[in-house]
Design a binder for these strands. Structure first.
Lengths: 194, 194
DNA sequence: AACGACCCTTAACCTACATTAAGTCCCCCG
DNA sequence: CGGGGGACTTAATGTAGGTTAAGGGTCGTT
């Protein structure tokens, strides 16, 4: 197991003693997820928080016509999952799968609850994490509600410069909320203006 | 000041000693906000978290054509604000105003930071709060991305049965992402099906 | 009582985006 | 080497929802 990325990530917000670090690490599980394999499907109950160490995962919903709508991409260093399902241990509304062969670290929700009690510093860590996520979701909502498709694309490019050219175009289309056909036309036509 | 609602709200998730409760209460500020008055405007730096005790607030963005897009409604018992602005103390992207004469309790971000240190239990409280908010935002995104306007309206009615008939219709329209004219037409035409 | 402010409605017209349907390219797998 | 599936494109046609413009109702203020 290679928890270095995750431990660095944590060290940015809280300072752990070696023992605390070891205890935390002992709760982690590793999982390899090959391209197109699912981490979760709609209706599943999320086991616990999931941290990406390699590859790219995505979460998405499926509408009644069978179309996918990407909620989030998760390259290495990101967390992913259906929050309501994880927190309340209820069936989720999101699918979660790998766009490339990937690797994640995760822990059981029940172990996380124990962790909060034995190492309360983690309350702080996950609070900060959650607050940042809220900021991101608020910004995303503003985006979807108040920008045109072209502007949403521009905004995506700015926000995820690293993802833009390693992701199939149709995934980007799904994230910004248009069909692949329309994104294709948009990129051809609108080389210039907005 | 009337912090009962807020204290009840807190007691659902953590248990405070009388002293802790007093200390927390001593950090609170009360503010009355009359209808149409602003709590925050775009570009402001949020002072700290805001809890609604009376009335209704809303947060919204303003697009480049001057149209409003409601991000959230906050009746009594809800928190509201621009999370990125509050957490990172940077200019926000949201406006926040009162739809009715309202009353809120709030604390300075700097006092909140002190509170986390003197009463670490609050880390837990705000973590839980933030996690629930993420669940709500995820669900809202799924809604916007994968439902039609009619379905979004139905979903809104289900989620906020108490708000639906105390809110001007144009506010609901803005929340579900359509024009007031279109919502009006929708309600007339589609009495029956979906 | 009357003014304005605000909200809701209606209806004609408009457009950003979806749908459908071919067709190309390319890469992976047999 | 051959073929099939996935990703991308193109273009014709369709539609959900926007825009514009006008009129009417209600309420709070003077």
């Amino acid at each position: 197991m290679e928890p270095t990325l995750l431990l660095h990530h944590i060290a940015k917000h809280i300072t752990l003693t070696p023992e605390e670090q070891d205890f935390f690490t002992s709760l982690l599980h590793e999982k390899k997820i090959r391209k197109k394999q699912f981490l979760n499907q709609e209706g599943d109950i999320a086991k616990g928080p999931v941290f990406v160490t390699e590859g790219i995962l995505r979460s998405y919903s499926l509408d009644k016509n069978g179309f996918e709508h990407v909620i989030q991409f998760a390259p290495p260093g990101w967390w992913i999952g259906d929050m309501n399902s994880m927190v309340k241990q209820q069936p989720g509304i999101l699918y979660c799968d790998a766009l490339e062969d990937s690797e994640v670290l995760w822990l059981w929700k029940s172990d996380l609850d124990k962790l909060y009690i034995t190492v309360p510093k983690f309350e702080r860590f996950f609070r900060i994490l959650a607050e940042n996520a809220i900021g991101t979701y608020q910004a995303r909502l503003v985006n979807i509600l108040s920008l045109s498709a072209k502007e949403r694309y521009a905004s995506f490019c700015q926000l995820y410069p690293s993802l833009i050219d390693c992701l199939p175009q149709k995934q980007v289309a799904s994230y910004i909320g248009v069909t692949p056909e329309f994104l294709s036309k948009m990129l051809r036509t609108g080389e210039g203006q907005m």
